[in-house]
Nucleic acid binder design. Sequence first.
DNA 1: CTGAAAGCGCTAACAG
DNA 2: CTGTTAGCGCTTTCAG
Lengths: 346, 346
Amino acid sequence: MTETVPRPTLEAVAARAGVSRATVSRVVNGADGVTEPLAERVRQAVDELGYVPNRAARSLVTNRHDAIAVIVAEPESRVFADPFFARQLRGISKELTAHDNQLVLLLTEGRADHARVARYLAGGHVDGALVFSLHLDDPLPELIQRAGVPTVFGGRPGWSGGRDGVVYVDSDNRGGARDAVRHLLGLGRGRVAHITGALDQTSAVDRLDGFRDAVVDGDPRLVAEGDFTVAGGERAMRELLERCPDLDAVFAANDLTAAGALRVLREHGRRVPDDVAVVGFDDMLPFAEQTDPPLTTVRQDILEMGRLMARILLRGLDRTVRTHDTVGGDPAGVILPTTLVRRASA
Amino acid sequence: MTETVPRPTLEAVAARAGVSRATVSRVVNGADGVTEPLAERVRQAVDELGYVPNRAARSLVTNRHDAIAVIVAEPESRVFADPFFARQLRGISKELTAHDNQLVLLLTEGRADHARVARYLAGGHVDGALVFSLHLDDPLPELIQRAGVPTVFGGRPGWSGGRDGVVYVDSDNRGGARDAVRHLLGLGRGRVAHITGALDQTSAVDRLDGFRDAVVDGDPRLVAEGDFTVAGGERAMRELLERCPDLDAVFAANDLTAAGALRVLREHGRRVPDDVAVVGFDDMLPFAEQTDPPLTTVRQDILEMGRLMARILLRGLDRTVRTHDTVGGDPAGVILPTTLVRRASA
DNA sequence: CTGAAAGCGCTAACAG
DNA sequence: CTGTTAGCGCTTTCAG
């Protein structure tokens, strides 16, 4: 393999079709103003030669790259233990592919990489960026924002209280949490506890807020801090049981946490949902269906989140080109609805 | 943000440094043959202007893109439930970054995407490809191979019995399995069972082979088929216990499977390792440390695998440029060693 | 509606 | 050792 056969150029196609390069270019780019018979001849030549436009040459003149950077700023641990990120990525990939954009993946591990990313972005190698910033104190998002590249964030960035021009897509964590707790309340539960997620992430904070929306003036002892893991859920559940043996429901910040809670409840001989009702968050499949009992939980559409991030960014780019407006002019946050999925645990 | 300030060109740097474009180009590309004082002046100009080379322009003339495609052909399920892939990606990313190459991620979901990937590759937008083909019958690898793009595979591809020019990096699954089982044998266990992984993946097949290397002429009833999941491990363990109540050791195809086995053994009142010794595979952390008891397992260096894949590819590309040789000329498979990590379960 | 020509920013001979 | 020059393949005015 590989003696790298030189690929056909516009020139070649033009020659074959008996037209000029300009005409071929027009046809290839779907510009109108070419008579059908000619266009057809060109298309045929393209097919016969297997012509594929040279992106570099095109970029050079258009100053667009049709490439989007996806930046993941995580010390590995969470992002990847986490099937969510994968789904989101898939959603992003789908959308970018549909619009013929490349997905350039940038993984960072710490401050050392920040400079590199900033440089890369400033280098103008991509048309825009999609950024996952899971932690409240992550400095990267600010840097990126300053690099002047159109950007959409995944999840509400913690560092900007809705600052100008910060565009993000997120699930309705607060609303979902509220619904979950109200569901518990509607079941007649009067002592609803909450195990939080890692509170350095906005999603955890928002879910806690949602919990508080639903149980105003709740007993503060009914809230225990978790960290989105099974182990964290177990720990918190033990705490809660000790502090408030009379609790009759638990809203866990995610399904893993709920699974931990479930296990501890069983250990303590509490029956779910009879004695204690449990609701999770995420609807992480197949996991959520396989707990014992199957988990009632709040579903978020992760794939769609990714897709939407990409779509919003791409749309913003088009606008930029046409009107010299920026993505910043868009509505800041897009919040996707969640739905409560009832199973056996509550 | 964004009124897109035109970025400085070589020309600009040249003007500022009072030299020609060629000289700047030389300095920027680290070519030698520029006197130090001049070079220094150029570097300074570069800094002051914040010059970053325009990749498109460079590609156009060099016909290199400094971009590598990472192709993941998986229906999502496994790849991402799986922290491995993430680590490998990280390893790849590190290596590519170190050599200033872009990581272009291509996710595929089925036949529909194959054509797209093939077209993309044939389009010559990347210099090489890194491919994860986990299933024996995946047609994608062949397609890719045919696209004529230098490629390195992650994991032994099932479809090619060491066919010419197929370069891959893999862990020593067979050797690791053999070591694990020998360890069990060395502990004096005489009835060693094996729970396989999903046998449509070469890693599972290789581990099974390793098992058989160690226990020649073993009782076939001591092998049960799993699927790399906890649930699969539970199921298989139950089967084994029923078929061979006298077993005194289990080698599980991975840590998740081992965890499932552990749980079932406990259910059945078998003590680990006293009654039954258990060894896993992967050393998936922190998981493997947190089972009860902590798992003795075979460690593979996943990050290094990724890194090596990238390194081999990149090295091959250099060679291609210099000698018109291809990656295909390399030794076909690179196998990374595994190490047995002793914990409490065996 | 189509073609000719200029030029995007860079590298790589080739001269000097 | 440094500068001059000629494109790489494409889009895009501008004429015709």
